[in-house]
């Protein structure tokens, strides 16, 4: 991690909701490489926003809880309107993404002139979700591919690099979790070049406990069908 360069023209967008126990650590790991970070606090009640602010991130505060999709869209709007960043990187607050992967993805976007780089945990064998989780994730991928006409290997991965021109095409209306499908759909509609990049997702006990419950995937599915 010490040899990685700093990404000065990229902003990390982190939706934040009640992650006070880990956000300090996540930001401390990311700030040396991504000096610009905006956390969108979705009305946390555990002091997450203050922790993020003290750690050195810009914090945008929702007045009440709106959902992760809404938080992402707010972060995108912030980066587009308040900064002149070339890239924005969506990143999870719970510490399941690796900063090295984010850096590599920005580098890939720069080198291959890509507008969007989706992180995928299924391009290699490093990430090992449980069997049931894998079935659910693969089903989500299949549904997303059916709905968007794109061929992705991992749909609900929160690590993505989006170039400014592609970010301008984003207008997420799915406030809850179905936004993952909506992001793919809207980025695909921009017709800009995209690629998938292999990433490693760290399933810590913490992220496992916070992660999507299987029953919630029913909500995601129905949200993504009903408009």
């Amino acid at each position: 991690m010490t040899v990685s360069p700093r990404a000065d023209d990229a902003w990390l967008v982190i939706p934040l909701f009640n992650e006070a126990t880990v956000i300090r650590e996540v930001l401390a790991g990311a700030l040396p490489h991504f000096p610009h970070i905006v956390c969108v606090d979705d009305a946390s009640t555990d002091g997450s926003a203050e922790a993020a602010e003290e750690a050195g991130a810009v914090v945008v505060r929702h007045p009440f809880n709106l959902g992760q999709g809404a938080a992402l869209q707010t972060g995108v709007r912030y980066v587009l309107e308040a900064t002149d960043a070339t890239y924005l990187v969506t990143f999870d607050a719970d510490g399941q993404h690796r900063v090295e992967d984010a850096l590599a993805m920005v580098e890939r976007a720069r080198q291959d002139d890509l507008a969007v780089v989706f992180g995928s945990r299924f391009l290699d064998e490093r990430t090992r979700p449980g069997l049931l989780k894998k079935v659910v994730l693969k089903t989500a991928v299949w549904i997303t591919n059916q709905q968007t006409g794109m061929r992705l290997s991992d749909a609900h991965n929160g690590l993505r690099v989006v170039r400014r021109d592609a970010a301008e095409g984003l207008d997420l209306s799915q406030n809850r979790m179905a936004h993952a499908t909506e992001i793919v759909l809207q980025l695909g509609r921009t017709r800009l070049p995209w690629a998938e990049h292999p990433v490693h997702v760290l399933y810590t006990d913490y992220s496992r406990a916070k992660g999507q419950s299987l029953i919630n995937s029913v909500n995601i599915l129905i949200d993504s069908i009903l408009k």
């Binding site: 969108v40 009440f64 809404a70 869209q73 707010t74 912030y78």
Partner: peptide
């Protein structure tokens, strides 16, 4: 809510 949040930030 988003407009409010962005403005105050």
């Amino acid at each position: 809510a988003r407009e409010l949040a962005l403005r105050s930030a």
